[in-house]
Design a protein around this nucleic acid. Structure first.
Length: 414
RNA sequence: GUGGCUGUAGCUCAGUUGGUUAGAGCACUAGAUUGUGGAUCUAGGGGUCGUGGGUUCAAAUCCCAUCAGCCACCCCA
C-alpha cells in the first residue's frame, strides 16, 4: 500500500488497538496478582541455544520459525518465540532455585517467522504464567483456574472451551509412543505424506491431523490412557477432580498433544470457534524436565501462555481514556490563567485538555471532540469576579464556580 | 513453505466493451457563527489507482512479475 510499510507480519498498534491489548495484559496481571504471581520480564532475545535446546530439535518452532541472527560479537542470538524457555533460563541464571516455589507472570512480544493471517503475526504478544517447584497436581489446577478467571474477567467465559489431556510421565509417554508407532507403521498406506514424515519425528502429532485419511487411521489407534501407569493416572485424576470441585468445565481430548517437546503430564488448551483456524487462545501444560534439561537442578514446572491479540480480538473495547475537563481561556490576557488551571487540575489527578489556540467557539468544538465531560471557561468577566464558568458538556448546564474551589468541585464530580 | 481470493483518498467503496482533468459517503480543515460544542448548509485540502515492467494512439481497467492483506493447509498464541 504505502511506500513505507511495516515488516510483514508486524503491526502498528495505534490508540484503540493498544488500549485493547493493554486491557488484556492488565487484566492478566491483576488476576495473577490475586494468586500471588509477581511479574518477571526477561529479554526479548537470548542465545540461540536457550531455545534450540529446550523446545526440541524437531519442533517447527526450532526448525523453521525462529528469528535467528548473529550479532557483531559473533554470537548466535534468537528473538524469543515463546516465554517459558527464557524464564527457565532466568531462573537458573539468577539463582532463584533458593526461592521455590516460584509463581511468575509475564507479558510481552514474541517472534515467529510464519506466514501471517488473522490472529497470527510474526511479532505477536503473549501473557503467561509459570509455577516452578511444585510437583503436585495442585499447581496444575491453580494455573488453569487462574487462566479461566482471566478469560472470565475479559468476558470470554462462555466463548471458550477448556480441553485437557494428559501426556503421562516419561515412562508412560515412551510406552505409548512405542505402541503408537507400532500401530501406525502397520497402516502406512493410509497416512498422508505429512504424517509419514511425522512418524519419525513426532508421531504423537499424527493424532490431531486434519487429513481425512489420517483421521481414519487414528480412529483405530491405541489410546494414551491404556499405556498410562498408575502414578500418571492418579495425577491426572487429581487434576480433573480439582477442576470439578472449582466448577471449571472441561472436555477430555485424548488427541490433544503439544508442539513443544518439554511437556509431560497435563496438557490443556482454551479454544474458541470465533477466530477461524486460530482456535487456540490459551495453551499450556506441565514441563517437569525442562529446567534440568537446561542445566539447572531438577525442578518441576507448569504454566500456560495466551495470545494477547487473539484475546483482544474477542474481548472488544479497550479501557478508554478518562474524559477530560476542557480548560478554555478567552482572550490573550487569560492564557496564563488557563495554563495554570490545567496544570493544577492535572496535578490533582484530573484529566485536563488545553487547546493551543482558537477562539471560544473553536475551543468548544475541540472540547466536544475530545469527549470532555465539562468545560471551564475563564474570560475577563469571570476573572474580574474570581470565578469560572463551568459547563456540563452532556447536559449543557452552566454555573459559576469560585476559582479557588474549582479543583475540589471537579474532583467531586464524577 | 504450499494453494486460493483481494489490493482505487485516513476509512467503507463506485469507476460501463480500455478513452481525455479518477468519483461518492464518512472523516479532516475553513466559513456561515468575533463569549458557547454536538445539528445543518457551503467551500476546501487530501490519490505514485499496492509496486515494477509489458501490450496499446490511449491502462485503475488487459498481460507478466513482485509486495502486502485475507482464507485454507502446515503449525501454533
Amino acid at each position: 500500500m504505502a511506500a513505507l510499510s511495516p515488516v510483514r507480519g508486524t503491526k502498528d498498534l495505534i490508540f484503540d488497538d493498544a488500549r485493547r491489548m493493554r486491557r488484556v495484559a492488565d487484566t492478566g496481571r491483576a488476576v495473577a496478582a490475586l494468586y500471588g504471581y509477581d511479574e518477571i520480564a526477561t529479554p526479548v532475545f537470548e542465545f540461540t541455544n536457550v531455545f534450540a535446546r529446550t523446545l526440541g530439535d524437531t519442533s517447527d518452532i526450532v526448525t523453521k520459525e525462529m528469528y535467528t541472527f548473529e550479532d557483531k560479537g559473533g554470537d548466535s542470538l534468537t528473538l524469543r518465540p515463546e516465554g517459558t524457555a527464557g524464564i527457565a533460563r532466568a531462573f537458573i541464571s539468577n539463582g532463584l532455585t533458593q526461592d521455590l516455589p516460584l509463581r511468575v507472570f509475564y507479558q510481552g512480544p514474541m517472534f515467529r517467522y510464519e506466514r501471517p493471517q488473522k490472529g497470527r503475526m510474526r511479532q505477536f504478544h503473549q501473557i503467561g504464567v509459570e509455577v516452578l517447584g511444585i510437583a503436585q497436581p495442585q499447581a496444575d489446577i491453580e494455573v488453569i483456574a487462574l487462566g479461566a478467571q482471566i478469560l472470565a474477567e475479559l468476558g470470554l467465559g462462555d466463548r471458550v472451551q477448556l480441553e485437557i489431556n494428559t501426556l503421562g510421565d516419561t515412562a508412560s509417554r515412551a510406552a505409548y509412543r512405542d505402541t503408537l508407532v507400532a500401530y501406525l507403521s502397520g497402516h502406512k498406506d493410509g497416512l498422508s505424506e505429512d504424517s509419514l514424515a511425522r512418524l519419525d519425528r513426532n508421531p504423537m502429532r499424527i493424532l490431531d491431523s486434519k487429513d481425512e485419511g489420517d483421521k481414519a487411521v487414528v480412529a483405530g489407534a491405541p489410546v494414551m490412557s491404556d499405556s498410562m501407569n498408575d502414578e500418571s493416572r492418579a495425577f491426572f485424576d487429581t487434576v480433573l477432580e480439582g477442576l470439578t470441585a472449582l466448577d471449571i468445565p472441561f472436555v477430555l481430548n485424548p488427541k490433544l498433544v503439544r508442539g513443544l517437546d518439554y511437556y509431560g503430564h497435563t496438557a490443556f488448551e482454551f479454544t474458541t470457534t470465533d477466530l477461524g483456524a486460530q482456535g487456540t487462545v490459551m495453551a499450556g501444560g506441565r514441563y517437569d524436565g525442562l529446567i534440568k534439561q537446561m542445566g539447572g537442578p531438577p525442578t518441576p514446572g507448569v504454566g500456560w501462555a495466551a495470545g494477547i491479540e487473539r484475546l483482544s480480538m474477542m474481548a472488544g473495547e479497550g479501557t478508554p481514556l478518562p474524559r477530560p475537563v476542557a480548560v478554555i481561556p478567552v482572550g490573550a490576557d487569560n492564557q496564563a490563567l488557563g495554563l495554570r488551571l490545567a496544570h493544577d487540575l492535572r496535578r490533582a489527578g484530573i484529566a485536563a485538555d488545553l487547546a493551543h489556540s482558537g477562539n471560544l467557539g473553536k475551543r468548544m468544538k475541540r472540547a466536544n471532540k475530545v469527549g470532555a465531560r465539562a468545560a471551564v471557561i475563564i474570560g475577563d468577566d469571570e476573572r474580574a469576579r474570581g470565578v469560572a464558568t463551568l459547563r456540563d458538556m452532556d447536559s449543557g448546564e452552566q454555573s459559576d464556580v469560585p476559582l479557588d474551589g474549582l479543583v475540589e468541585t471537579l474532583k467531586a464530580a464524577p
